[in-house]
Amino acid sequence: MGKLICDSTASSPVIPWRDPTSTPSSIDLVDTSSWENVSSLEDQQRKHLTKIQSKGVLWKHPQDQNVSMVFRLSHGGEVEADGNCLFTACGKSMGVKTVSCARDLRRRTVRRFLEDLGSEKEAIESAIKHMYSPDLKSGWGIHVVQELKLLAKKDDREVLESAISELVHLGMQRELAAESIYKERCIAVDDGPSWAKYMSISGSPDDEYDIITLQYTEEGLLTVDENIYGHAAAFGDDIAIECLATVFKREIFVVRN
């Protein structure tokens, strides 16, 4: 996955949009060698990114289709493939590479989200519930595996573990016991306030909550990721991207291969 972060308020470096059959001039050619040096990419991904880099990405104004712009994609460097990748990438694009920068961007994202939540609360919370607390009675025609995200307070982990162990001693399977206790005592990510708590988690010992993930197939519980050491971070989703874009008054594009 590559990210385009472009300043929509300034004069951005752009290239003319070309049809696939047109022949680019020497002026339009760009250096695509950077993608050859990205070891984590598959051949097909590298091919697609090289094509996007040489062609550009067309953006049209959502309210006025006559207003358009072509942005250029470039490789800005490697980031760890963890939950902090969106925020780390944004920090790198601003020339800041510290861990504290990524955490600060998380805080600013969450703060902006809470400030704007009231305007479209019902639609936003419906989207949150769909992503993190889906109805397990439906959706199986689209998904093979569905996940429930729960938040466990770090301070409560020993108490939760003790409760799970009690059920195990009574003869219950460990994963079923964990599912029962976590669903009963942890916070489901299904509304604005719980999303704010979730998106604040960077996998740091300073986090207030740990992420618990329950995975299901149509047949029932598949796995329980208890995240015992609290290293899991919340991946930046579409809501987080929109909040970041608003904070910095920029267009943020995610290019998927």
Rank of each mutant, 00 (worst) to 15 (best):
T9Q: 10
H169T: 12
L167D: 11
V67F: 03
R103T: 13
E78R: 08
S22P: 01
K153D: 09
A102E: 03
V30T: 05
V255M: 12
L160S: 03
A89M: 04
L151W: 00
K137F: 07
Q45Y: 15
Q44S: 05
V145W: 00
H169R: 13
L117W: 06
K55V: 10
F71E: 03
C90I: 13
I27Y: 08
S100F: 03
V254H: 10
A123G: 00
S165N: 12
N227M: 04
L41I: 06
N257T: 04
S54T: 06
A123L: 11
V70C: 04
Q53V: 10
R107K: 08
I212D: 08
R250Q: 13
V79I: 10
V255A: 09
C243N: 14
G76I: 10
N257P: 15
D207N: 11
P193S: 09
W195F: 15
R111S: 15
G77M: 11
K249V: 09
P24N: 10
K249R: 15
T213V: 07
C186Q: 06
T21Y: 05
S100H: 09
H75A: 12
Y229N: 11
L105V: 14
K249C: 00
E242F: 02
G2F: 13
F253Q: 03
S8P: 08
S138E: 13
L29F: 01
V14G: 05
N66H: 09
D43S: 13
R185Y: 06
S39R: 14
P205Q: 13
C6N: 05
A245P: 03
D43Q: 10
S74L: 12
V144R: 07
P20S: 04
V99P: 01
T32Y: 01
H231K: 10
E208A: 05
T88D: 05
Y132L: 10
D225I: 06
S100M: 01
P13V: 02
L114E: 14
Y209S: 00
M131Q: 15
G139D: 07
L58G: 11
I212V: 14
V70S: 07
V79W: 02
E147W: 10
F253M: 00
T246W: 04
L136P: 03
S54Y: 09
C90E: 03
R111P: 00
Q215V: 12
A177P: 05
F248M: 03
L105P: 02
V79R: 00
P62N: 12
T98Q: 04
L41D: 01
D64V: 02
V247N: 01
